[in-house]
Amino acid sequence: MARLIDLSIDSDQVIQHLKHEVKLKTVYQSILCKQIIEKASQERGITVEPEEVQAEADQFRYDHKLESASQTLEWLEDNLLTPDDWEAGIYDQLLKKKLADSLFGKQIEAYFAQSKVQYEQAVLYRILVPYSALAQEIFYQVEEEEISFFEAAHLYNIDEYRRLACGFEGKVSRWQLKPDVAAYVFGAHPREVIGPIQSGHDFELLMVEEFIPAELTNDVRQQISSQLFDEWLESELNHLVYSQ
């Protein structure tokens, strides 16, 4: 039973809430995935040592500035966790990572070589506005050098974060963009204005600051590993569910 302030919540109430919010199936599938990971890890002799859990916990505390035991306990209590709950969660994450490395660690370089183009990156700026006519007018103004792309982004962008950042979107990989948008972006020249492109009910203009060639960095390794593992896990889950 969880207790929050002066209210008590039992497991039946949690289950009923998940049903009412149509989230019970998601939780059910998550539990099945945990069982699949545990079974596959056991079959491969994969284990997680207490020292590994402790090291991960220490890193978490450092990253979240939980500098004392009392601060950590306060954080655990605020999240309705016991120290054992927390360590069990860390154990599960480490086991999942080790299993992914065991299954797909040797396939990452080959996968990257086959899909290298998808990991090309562009440093992208974006202006999002609500009307096609306004997007077209901004396009003409920037093309005629009546205003810079950055000034226009700061004046017209309806996305507050991008408006304050003068349109800066950041580094974007080809795979993160819709295919048609990716074709526009990676077919453009640096500082060329792209668009207007319809985005839902709004319209956007794009500009590439620079292109970054694909490189198998640690982040890309992790992305590929996670993708391959998620695909494997979904396949295993479907097999388990539909074979019953």
Results as ranks from 00 to 15, higher is better:
residue 55 A to R: 05
residue 87 E to N: 14
residue 58 D to T: 07
residue 9 I to C: 11
residue 126 R to T: 15
residue 214 A to Q: 00
residue 51 E to N: 13
residue 152 A to W: 00
residue 95 L to P: 06
residue 16 Q to M: 13
residue 133 A to K: 13
residue 62 Y to R: 15
residue 114 Q to G: 05
residue 172 V to S: 04
residue 41 S to D: 03
residue 30 S to H: 12
residue 243 S to T: 14
residue 39 K to M: 07
residue 45 G to P: 07
residue 52 E to Q: 14
residue 26 T to R: 10
residue 213 P to R: 08
residue 164 L to H: 13
residue 21 E to I: 03
residue 175 W to V: 08
residue 168 F to I: 00
residue 234 E to V: 05
residue 5 I to W: 13
residue 237 L to E: 07
residue 61 R to I: 00
residue 41 S to I: 00
residue 33 C to E: 14
residue 120 E to R: 08
residue 14 V to M: 08
residue 177 L to K: 06
residue 140 Y to G: 05
residue 31 I to P: 03
residue 117 V to L: 11
residue 61 R to S: 08
residue 156 Y to E: 04
residue 48 V to L: 00
residue 161 Y to C: 04
residue 17 H to L: 13
residue 14 V to S: 06
residue 116 K to T: 15
residue 176 Q to D: 13
residue 73 L to D: 14
residue 196 P to R: 00
residue 21 E to Y: 10
residue 119 Y to L: 05
residue 218 N to R: 05
residue 61 R to K: 12
residue 13 Q to E: 15
residue 124 L to W: 04
residue 31 I to C: 07
residue 242 Y to G: 05
residue 103 L to E: 06
residue 115 S to C: 11
residue 132 S to D: 15
residue 13 Q to Y: 06
residue 125 Y to P: 02
residue 16 Q to I: 06
residue 44 R to C: 04
residue 118 Q to H: 10
residue 34 K to G: 14
residue 45 G to T: 01
residue 176 Q to R: 15
residue 48 V to P: 06
residue 139 F to H: 10
residue 109 E to F: 03
residue 12 D to F: 07
residue 92 D to E: 15
residue 34 K to L: 04
residue 127 I to E: 03
residue 209 E to H: 07
residue 231 E to S: 12
residue 173 S to P: 11
residue 92 D to F: 09
residue 68 S to L: 00
residue 143 E to Y: 12
residue 149 F to M: 00
residue 180 D to A: 13
residue 94 L to V: 03
residue 227 Q to C: 04
residue 9 I to Q: 09
residue 184 Y to T: 12
residue 166 C to V: 09
residue 1 M to N: 12
residue 239 H to C: 10
residue 123 V to Y: 11
residue 66 L to I: 00
residue 89 G to E: 14
residue 111 Y to K: 04
residue 96 K to M: 08
residue 57 A to V: 05
residue 176 Q to G: 10
residue 136 Q to H: 06
residue 221 R to V: 02
residue 200 G to P: 05
residue 91 Y to A: 09
residue 4 L to R: 13
residue 122 A to K: 04
residue 234 E to Y: 12
residue 143 E to P: 01
residue 171 K to V: 08
residue 161 Y to I: 09
residue 209 E to K: 09
residue 23 K to P: 05
residue 231 E to R: 14
residue 103 L to R: 01
residue 11 S to P: 03
residue 113 A to L: 13
residue 94 L to S: 07
residue 68 S to E: 02
residue 146 E to I: 05
residue 130 P to M: 03
residue 218 N to V: 04
residue 68 S to Q: 01
residue 229 F to L: 02
residue 217 T to D: 09
residue 174 R to N: 12
residue 202 D to F: 10
residue 126 R to N: 15
residue 234 E to T: 10
residue 195 G to F: 01
residue 141 Q to T: 06
residue 49 E to P: 06
residue 55 A to F: 01
residue 223 Q to F: 01
residue 160 E to Y: 03
residue 78 D to V: 01
residue 28 Y to Q: 10
residue 144 E to P: 08
residue 19 K to C: 11
residue 137 E to K: 14
residue 161 Y to K: 14
residue 4 L to E: 15
